[in-house]
């Protein structure tokens, strides 16, 4: 075939001759990074925003927080005032969510309950975070015997049935807001400590951490600058899931009569008080607190899932 002969190289007539001049090029162009590089957090945020379910959860939680403070203020009724004439009124234009058996306004109480429930959840998450990160961070970072000893303790605590311990402590200390938070966190931090330790162990062996170690960077600085940013993902996810489980646990304690005590009310205690009301047809007393618990659980769970996906570096494309 002609094509194989060397002197018969194809000349494409439609290409003008003067295109065959050397290209004027600069070296930087070749070295330029072709894709815009986003920081880890920007990238994670972009991915979270794309997750509709997680964003729904986030938006609901923001609204919930606003309403927890705004709700009691815009309500025409007080949450603690008992009006025996207005017992068990169905929702109406006057009492938006109805009233309870003591004539208290459910709308106002439900948002006051939101403050308490959210406070319990957030407090538990923050305390777990503080203890868990410190404990797990030290165990993972120090390694060796320290780690071994610290993790033995964690193992024993982890073996304890969580809710039983919570019940016991509540029985002993007597129910109340402080007791609940104390009981929820006394063994609750263990899960966080395990996660942090696992992450730290993993990250510790990454080359860039080794590198800063060889440069003689101080331990505290390595933990702050290298380890924490890289372990933040799973920690944030764990915290997102601690809040609803604390709210749930409080509801469970309320059911056992060990929850928030009057005059304070939480969603759990309101729902528990209303359990018998549903059989007498006063559905709104159970419906609104139960709905808010469920929506909050739902929001935190989908947000946690979304964060888990968004913060997972493996999924980065």
């Amino acid at each position: 075939m002609e094509l194989h002969k060397r002197d018969n190289r194809n000349i494409s007539p439609e290409i003008p001759d003067d295109w065959f001049a050397p290209k004027n090029k600069n070296q930087e162009q070749a070295e330029a990074v072709v894709r815009p590089s986003l920081s880890y957090w920007q990238d994670a945020w972009n991915r979270l925003v794309k997750n509709k379910l997680a964003m729904t959860g986030l938006i609901f939680l923001i609204l919930l927080t606003i309403m927890a403070f705004l709700g009691p203020a815009i309500s025409p009724h007080s949450g603690s005032q008992q009006q025996l004439a207005n017992q068990n009124l169905a929702p109406s234009s006057d009492y938006w969510f109805g009233t309870d058996e003591l004539g208290r306004d459910v709308f106002t109480r439900v948002w006051q309950g939101a403050q308490v429930s959210l406070f319990v959840g957030l407090a538990a998450a923050l305390i777990d975070f503080a203890i868990g990160v410190a404990y797990g961070g030290i165990a993972g970072y120090k390694g060796g015997k320290t780690d071994n000893f610290m993790m033995r303790i964690v193992e024993i605590l982890y073996g304890l049935p969580y809710l039983l311990v919570v019940i016991l402590i509540s029985v002993v200390m007597g129910p109340g807001l402080f007791t609940i938070i104390f009981a929820l966190t006394i063994t609750g931090w263990v899960g966080m400590a395990r996660i942090v330790r696992g992450q730290v162990l993993q990250v510790k062996n990454y080359e860039f951490v080794m590198a800063s170690k060889t440069f003689g960077t101080k331990t505290g600085r390595i933990i702050r600058k290298n380890l924490l940013p890289n372990t933040m993902g799973p920690i944030i996810v764990q915290m997102t899931l601690t809040v609803p489980s604390a709210i749930f646990a409080e509801a469970f304690l309320s059911f056992l009569g060990l929850g928030i005590q009057p005059p304070l009310a939480s969603w759990g205690s309101m729902a528990n008080d209303a359990l018998s009301a549903i059989l007498t047809g006063h559905w709104w007393r159970l419906f609104f607190p139960a709905l808010l618990i469920s929506l909050t659980m739902f929001s935190f769970n989908v947000l946690g899932d979304g964060l888990q996906d968004a913060l997972d570096p493996k999924l980065r494309r």
Binding site: M1, H4, W19, F20, A21, P22, K23
Partner: peptide, 24 residues
């Protein structure tokens, strides 16, 4: 490959080269 090529010419950016058969 233009951006990394030592022999890059104006044409390389403008059109994809035709296939040249040297042997079978």
């Amino acid at each position: 490959f233009t951006a990394r090529c030592d022999f890059a010419m104006e044409v390389c950016d403008k059109a994809y080269p035709f296939k040249t058969h040297l042997t079978k």
